[in-house]
Structure formats: C-alpha cells, structure tokens
Computed example of a mutant assay.
Amino acid sequence: MTTALTAGTAPATGWHDLDVRLAHSKMAPKLLPVLEGAPGIRLHVSETVTADDADVLVGFQFPPGSLAGLERLRWLHLTGTGTDHLAAAGLRPDVLVTNSATVPVTAVAEYALAGLFTLLKDVPELVGRSDAPWYRSDAVLLAGSTVAVAGAGRIGRALVERLAALGARPVAVTRTGEVPVPGAVRTVAADRLAAEAAGFDHLVACLPGTPQTRGLIGADVLAALPAHAAVVNVGRAETVDNAALHALLRAGRLRGAFVDVHDAEPLPADDPVHAVPRLVVSPHRAFAFPGEPAEVARTLLANLDDLRAGRTPRDLTPWPSERNAS
C-alpha cells in the first residue's frame, strides 16, 4: 500500500519504471512532445480512465466514481489546480496527488487585470460600434483606486504585485488576515469582507473552491460595495453569490462585472446570464497561453525528478484534506 507524503523526504525507489496514462485527450497531443522519450515511463493516452493499468494518472477533472477501484494507481497529477472533485471520483486517500498550480499564475493574473481594465475603460461600449461618442468617456483610473483581492494564493499575490506596480492600492483578503501579503497596503480577514467592502473601489476574486470559500462573496459583501465598483471573478464560480451579483447589475448598482467562471459550463447560448446588463461573460479562458501544455508536462517531470531523488514533490497537494472534504 502506498503511503501519501506530507512532509520530509519521499522514497526514491519504485519511480523508475512507470505506466503513465494521460486521461486528457484534448491536451495529450500537446503534452506528448515534452513527455515522449523521458526515461522510465511508458505513455498511454485515453479519453477516460477505463482500466486499472497505470501507476500514474494525468488528467483534469474526473466524474463521480471514475477513480474507484484503481488499486495499482500510486500518483495522480492534475493538469489544473482543483481537487474538490476527487472525493466523489473515489480516489483512494493514500494516492499521491500533485497539481499544476504554478503554471497558470501569470496568465490568470494578467487576465484579471484585463477584466478590470475592460470594465474601467468601458471597452464593452466600444466593441462592434461605429457610433460611440467622440472625445467623451466615462472611463476611470485604476491608479489610486483601492482594489480588494480576495484570495492571496499564488495568483492573488501575483495580481497584488501587478496592481501595486500600476499605482493601485491592493488590499489582500486572506483566511485570517494575520500575515501581511507583500505589496498589499493592508491584509484583512475574510470574515471582515462585508464590513470592509464600502471602502473598496473594486473587487477581484481569486478564490479556490473549498467549503470555507463557498459563497464567501455573498449578497452582503456585494451590496456593501460602492455603486462605482467593478467586480471580477477568475477564481471559482461558487465563491460568489452570482444571483445577487446579477440582481445588483440589473438594478444599476455596480459599474460592471467580468466573470470567467460560471455555475454551469459551458453556458448555453440562450442562458439568461447573457442578457444581464454590464456583465461580461468570459468563457473560462483565463488560464490559457500558448505554452501552457508544455509547462504542465514539465511540471509533471519536475515532480517525478523529486520523487526519484527522494524529495517531497514540489507540487504536492494535501489529500485528503479539509480543503477538499465534502
């Protein structure tokens, strides 16, 4: 029985002759050029997990029950970041889990900024129009504004750094608010969001999906934001009360919202969300950049190097843990 690693060193034996299944057929062709020829691994590609024939499994999300009964499996590497689906998928608690959380950091931080600028510079009012008024604009400055960044993990911290460089005043929102986030003018606790919201000019959500973050940006937080506030979500959809957000936008209460994650994906073309005024619906693409698949493959190999050297894998993800408990 494999023992999950949480700290210290990893056993260096048993990681040199591996069957690796890429259960991510859309990304697999872009992973293969980096992985092919790597010593000590045999690659197999499939759309789903169909048999217990792999030591290592690489994939994004797994439907309920799809990982149950995989007795041979020792290591799961996620091409994304979220682990909230693994319990329902039936993953054994002793399987080693790593993820690709470091890969999209720059892309998502830049996309969050793009969303914010889209709203502050009234870009939706210009797209596809030839009758936009000349020499007049309702655009506002990002510089000098106070921007709350809810979630100060890798992406949130990268966004704080960029906001500060652009002259904004980033306020980091963390679970306890006790450890100052570098670059932020203040760090506040998540349970202070509603009380602090009136002092934010804008709010960007970079929150992971956990039981603790579900609905964290609720109706009370959104209602407390000033009428000129812009809201951006590049985290998880369930961390924001989207019904409350839509209601405020319909009432003209906020400047606008830019949302890259949604309660159901992909959204149907006739979904009512498309008609919400001043809501920019982005089709979950913040993570994307041309080199993403190659970086995911390199991340897998870097963690394999760690295992073979007897080190704890650099992208080890606690499993099971409070974060992904159902």
Rank of each mutant, 00 (worst) to 15 (best):
A219G: 04
A229S: 13
I217W: 09
H228Y: 03
G215K: 11
G218K: 10
V221W: 13
A223C: 06
V221A: 11
R236W: 01
V234R: 00
A224T: 12
N242M: 14
A223N: 14
G215Q: 09
V231R: 01
L225P: 11
A244Y: 12
A219P: 08
A219N: 00
V231E: 13
A224Q: 04
L216V: 05
V232G: 06
P226N: 02
V232E: 13
L225D: 13
A237W: 02
N242K: 02
L225H: 03
L222A: 07
D241Q: 05
V221T: 15
A219E: 15
A243F: 02
N242Q: 15
L216S: 11
A243E: 15
T239P: 08
A227F: 07
I217Y: 04
V234L: 01
L216C: 03
L225T: 11
A223M: 11
N233M: 06
A224F: 08
I217D: 08
T239V: 12
A223V: 04
R236G: 07
A244R: 05
V221E: 13
N233H: 03
E238T: 12
A229V: 04
P226M: 09
L216R: 03
D241L: 12
G215H: 05
N242Y: 13
A244P: 08
A237D: 09
A227G: 04
A244L: 11
T239E: 13
V221H: 08
I217S: 10
E238R: 13
A223S: 15
N233P: 07
A237P: 11
D220E: 15
R236L: 04
N233Q: 02
N233K: 00
A230N: 09
N233F: 02
P226Q: 04
H228D: 13
V234W: 00
A243Y: 01
A229G: 02
V232Q: 01
A244D: 07
V231A: 07
D241R: 12
V240M: 03
D241E: 04
H228F: 11
G215R: 10
V221C: 12
V231Q: 11
P226R: 03
L225G: 02
L225N: 10
L225Q: 11
V232P: 05
V234G: 01
L225R: 03
R236I: 03
E238W: 00
A219L: 03
V221S: 14
A224G: 13
A229T: 05
A230C: 13
A244S: 02
T239G: 15
L222H: 14
V231N: 06
A229D: 10
A219H: 05
H228S: 15
G218R: 08
A223D: 15
L225V: 06
A219M: 01
N242V: 08
N242L: 14
A219F: 12
E238M: 00
A230L: 06
G235P: 01
E238G: 14
V240L: 10
D241G: 02
N242D: 15
V221R: 04
A219Y: 08
A224K: 03
V240E: 02
D241H: 07
V232R: 00
N242E: 15
R236V: 09
V231M: 11
A230G: 15
A219C: 09
A219S: 14
A244G: 04
D220W: 03
L216M: 14
A224I: 06
L225A: 07
A237G: 10
A230D: 10
H228C: 02
G218T: 05
D241N: 12
